[in-house]
Design a protein around this nucleic acid. Structure first.
Length: 219
DNA sequence: ATCCCGAGGG
DNA sequence: CCCTCTGGAT
C-alpha cells in the first residue's frame, strides 16, 4: 500500500463535507427500520453484507421478532434460516439472541442509548453502536465503517488504519453535530465514486481537494 | 478473486 | 497484531 497522504485541516474537512452534502442531499441511513430495536438488528446483520441484502431479510425477521422478548425465545435454527443470506449467519444469530436476552434482562426490553451500554451487547462494536446513537437517538455518532475508514485515509483526514484510531482522528477533526451526517456522506461517496477497487477518480468532484489527485496508481 | 455500512477471539 | 465466520454480487 502507498504512503499515507499529507494530513488535511479541519477547514479542508468542512469544505469537503459541504460539497458532498450538495452531491448527496439525500444521504442517510440505508438500513430500513422503524424503531431502535429494528435498527439494532439490521445493523448487526450489516456486517460484511450490503444494506440491500439486509433490507431483503428484515421484513420477515421483524414480523417474526417484533420485540427482543420474542427473539430471545425463538429456536436458534429458525433465526439462522431467517438471516441466512446475510452471511456469517451462525455468529449473527447467536449474537442477536444473546443481545435480545440482554435487552430483556438488563434494559427493560429497550435498546440503551449510550456507547458504554451498547458495546456491552453481543455483536455490537463501536461502529454498530455509533449507527444506533446517530440514527435512532439523534446523538453524535461517528460511524467508521469500511467506507469511512478508506475515505478518511484517501482524503488525508487520518493516517491510521485501525477503525478506533480513525474514529478518534475524525472526532477531533469534525464538529460533534456533524459526526453522523459526515458518516452518511462519506459512505455515499465511498459507494458511488471512491470505491475500494478502481476508484472512479475521473468522475469525482473532489479531485481538487483530494491529496491523491495526480497519483497514478489510485488503488 | 475480491468486496460488502464488523465483531470476537487468539 | 492476526485469524475466523459466511453468502451473494461483481
Amino acid at each position: 500500500m502507498s504512503k499515507p497522504p499529507v494530513l488535511r485541516s479541519t477547514r479542508h474537512a468542512r469544505q469537503t463535507l459541504r460539497q458532498l452534502s450538495e452531491l448527496y442531499p439525500e444521504a442517510e441511513c440505508a438500513l430500513h427500520h422503524t424503531s431502535p430495536w429494528e435498527l439494532l438488528v439490521a445493523t448487526i446483520l450489516s456486517a460484511q453484507c450490503t444494506d440491500v441484502r439486509v433490507n431483503l431479510v428484515t421484513p420477515a425477521l421483524f414480523a417474526r421478532c417484533p420485540t427482543p422478548e420474542v427473539m430471545s425465545r425463538i429456536p436458534l435454527e429458525e433465526l439462522e434460516q431467517l438471516i441466512k443470506t446475510t452471511g456469517f449467519f451462525r455468529n449473527k444469530a447467536k449474537n442477536l439472541q444473546l443481545c435480545a436476552s440482554a435487552l430483556v434482562e438488563h434494559h427493560g426490553g429497550e435498546v440503551p442509548g449510550s456507547m458504554e451500554e451498547l458495546v456491552e451487547l453481543a455483536g455490537v462494536g463501536r461502529k454498530t453502536a455509533n449507527v444506533i446513537l446517530g440514527n435512532a437517538f439523534q446523538l453524535p455518532g461517528m460511524v467508521v465503517d469500511t467506507h469511512v475508514k478508506r475515505l478518511a485515509y484517501r482524503l488525508g483526514w487520518s493516517a491510521e488504519r485501525e477503525p478506533e484510531k480513525v474514529e478518534v482522528d475524525l472526532c477531533r477533526l469534525l464538529a460533534k453535530r456533524d459526526w453522523t451526517q459526515a458518516s452518511h456522506l462519506l459512505i455515499a461517496h465511498g459507494r458511488a465514486i471512491c470505491r475500494a477497487q478502481r476508484p472512479w477518480c475521473s468522475s469525482c468532484s473532489l479531485q481538487s481537494r483530494c491529496p491523491r489527485n495526480g497519483v497514478k496508481n489510485s488503488k
